[in-house]
Amino acid sequence: MAPQRSAGKHMGNPTTAPPLVETRGLKKYFSTPQGPLHAVDNVNITIARGETLGLVGESGCGKSTLGRVVIRLLNPTAGSVFLDGHDIVNYGKEELRSFRRRAQMVFQDPYSSLNPRLSVEQLISEPLRIHKVFPNERETSARVKKLMDTVGLAQRLATSFPHELDGGRRQRIGVARALALGPEFIVLDEPVSALDVCVQAQILNLLHDLKDEFQYTYLFITHDLSVVRHISNRIVVMYLGKVIELADHLELFENPQHPYTRALLSAIPVPRVDIARKGRIILEGDVPSPVNPPAGCRFYGRCPSRQDICAVNAPELEEISPDHFLACHFPVSTGGN
């Protein structure tokens, strides 16, 4: 059942190998009575085969919408999404069906994303049945057993129902469902946010081990910066529907250039008392509404280094050093802050 995985060798080298996933000019607007809500606005990202791309931002920045558009749980308003060079936006029903076997999703809340009336066995076999992967029950059930082993669920739980299990075990079911069809690309939308810290660590370890074994490509969406630094190869920072910075995970943390990225990183409560209480940048105000966003830079209203040009001219995402992309007129290193 393992899909062909041509290229573990391309790992960590996103610029030379053709990307597994690429978005071009991707937009998703929702219509609201007040006007269009710009959830995702002109996003261009690539994800290399075998890479974990971390996607961070605050509530309402469009990160979950982007994750859903990328695997076509939502249709984009404009733009393209390529998987292995094929644009999936215009896929018909049949093509979409085979695409689903290659791209899967793990949802945030293991309490509401599982049908409470299905047993663990039924939940994990559901994708196998829908896609008629195996001709008979025997092979399906063997595959379910194997998947339960893979994600660390004891076989005795096969007949249990979600309400009998804790959050960590439920999230393991969510992971098993996503793995069932042997995907190459998995979107993980806040997969550990609802979990306690010890269980969160157990699931992060599981995701890491699975990737080691099967060379999955992850888009890992989270608001938790210490988690994203831990698990990602590269990190994208979004603000109000736009990508504002994209860099290698260590580069982003050591050398953040966007004033928002800097504020975001400095706002992380570090579990240490010796360094916890100094040098925090406190942003004023709240994230503005993505309905009818203003012209110019969307961070303008809260930016500590704003200038007049920022109000009228929206900065484009540009490569400021190898593999470090930034959308800001006044980056931190040029004395912008």
């Binding site: 810290v197 010890c198 660590a201 370890n205 210490s226 988690v227 630094r229 831990h230 992380i268 579990p271």
Partner: peptide, 15 residues
């Protein structure tokens, strides 16, 4: 140990 340490680079957490 369960919290990813921002000052270190480890692949697995010691939970």
């Amino acid at each position: 140990n369960s919290i990813p340490d921002m000052t270190k680079n480890v692949t697995r957490l010691n939970t």
